[in-house]
Design a protein around this nucleic acid. Structure first.
Lengths: 173, 173, 173, 173
DNA sequence: GATGAATGAGGATTCATTCAT
DNA sequence: AATGAATGAATCCTCATTCAT
């Protein structure tokens, strides 16, 4: 990955997050990145190829967030940790996820359902806790997780802790 | 409102919901509506004017959903009712809200925050219930409400009742 | 067919004949025609659609050349007439056929084989003349017809009559 | 001439013959040749330089075809031989000539008129045969020669002998 | 109210070409 | 000799929008 390739990616993240995929021209991306427009196509083949790259990067980031889960064993701790994820994401991740959400409504692709990645872990945890309807509870958990993520993406709130406490209580965690 | 005007609106709702605002050309809308392209501009001035119309319609629909609330007095009943709203919306509303969500990420406009409309009622209800932190609880309630709406928009689920029960329990309703 | 549509077609014929299909940009065509570039695409969908139109027109012209054949009955007269066709085409037809020939090497399409249209008439005539191998003779006739057309397209010769006489002699016509 | 240079030339012949000069990008040529795109420009300066090389090669091939003529003395034999040339060319030559023909309509260059090379020999032969209008007959001969070449380039026919016989008869050869 | 011909700016993409290594 | 990253002009095409009828 050359330096200019990286600059393109970063400009794309910023611009797609601000003005959306369709609303961002490749020429602006190039200008912002200080790069010729042609280079975008050399590296990513397509404007869409550039988007695909961002999706791929998002997946990587999410996997990095899941990794620590492997070392946790207690189900309550696992669920706590998952619920805290949306409230702890950094600026770069926020932008990336904003891009994904902005595009999700045009592109019907399972890969867009980022949080689905957590489903197995959540289900397994509720089972371990002997919840009487773990499947429903998992669905609700995911819905709330998504609501939280959406809130964070749009509000840059400071009271993450307060929000988290409130949510934990709802799930007796 | 002429018949052709209505056809334009309906085509716009369907197409914007499917392929997004930017992804839908005025020419396709016209073709779908069986109407000349020029007519769209006669009636709505702009492609954006057409979108504004859809937003306006969405607001109307939401107000229709809030109206019954005026006749309810018991706070628990009010909150129950609000939570049930996303789970009971019809096909047309679903499409409209999908349009709004698809556009929300490019257009930073308070009017896009549809559910904010319910905030006063929710806050008032939690206060009436003597909740010890009604403001936080309202925020959480709204987050979950949005998570629910998102889920409904994307999954056309059949078990609305199950989901609702599960959510009510979380708020002791 | 509007006036501007016609202007586009004429500019296309001239430019394609001069600089080839690939060598002619839609923007030059538009400029030459005194028309906005977009109009080309409104009317012909594609640059290729414009080419298709020219091919279609060429076919029409050829059919107009064949029509008089229906009224001829004597096989020798028919063959004479066909051989004279390349030598009598006008300026506009010359340009059109030049376009077709210029494009024929990239596009492998039966429709490009203009002279094939005459094959049935030629074969029928040689049969009527009791030629001992009418199929071979037809092939040779077509080869020579094409050689003649090519010569005319590239040389704007004045001695059509001389050439024709020479050819007629070869076929005992 | 390095091995890679040769590979470039061969790829160019194949691709230009298939999709035309304009229709073939230097990048495809490079890919097909298994070579970096830059190398094309190192060796041939230009895309056009590459074409010039192919034209040059074509001339060589034609000269190789003419050479045996020097050893022939009888005019009828000479004309026979010339007429047989288009019917005996190999695959590689076919492709090369197809390239030339494809480009001939854009580039107005005498060098494109391949068969002109034979003119002196043909004229001289008809004179030796005491033809009463050797100039006209030469022109006709060249026209037919070109028609034959065109036929061969487009039809990969198997009955070369039959065609040749038929042509010879037309010239009393 | 309605049409459809016409516009022109802007968009994604391709392509020949250069240059440092 | 050979690579491959990088360029920027040019190309085809789309799209919102206007206007005469």
């Amino acid at each position: 990955m050359t330096e200019k390739e990286l600059k393109i990616i970063n400009s794309a993240i910023n611009l797609f997050a601000q003005t959306g995929y369709d609303g961002t021209s490749t020429s602006i991306i190039a200008k912002e990145a200080g790069v010729s427009e042609g280079l975008i196509f050399k590296h990513f083949k397509n404007k869409n190829g550039l988007l695909e790259k961002l999706i791929e990067i998002s997946k990587e980031k999410l996997k990095d967030m899941i990794n620590p889960l492997q070392e946790l064993s207690h189900p309550k701790v696992i669920l706590k940790y998952i619920l805290s994820i949306p409230l702890n994401i950094g600026q770069q991740e926020k932008k990336l996820f904003t891009v994904i959400y902005g595009v999700r409504w045009q592109i019907n692709d399972k890969r867009m359902d980022l949080l689905k990645l957590f489903e197995p872990k959540i289900l397994e945890s509720f089972k371990a806790l002997n919840h009487n309807d773990p499947i429903s509870e998992t669905r609700t958990f995911l819905m709330i997780l998504e609501g939280t993520l959406l809130y964070v993406l749009q509000n840059d709130s400071q009271d993450s802790l307060l929000i988290l406490d409130n949510l934990l209580e709802k799930f007796n965690l």
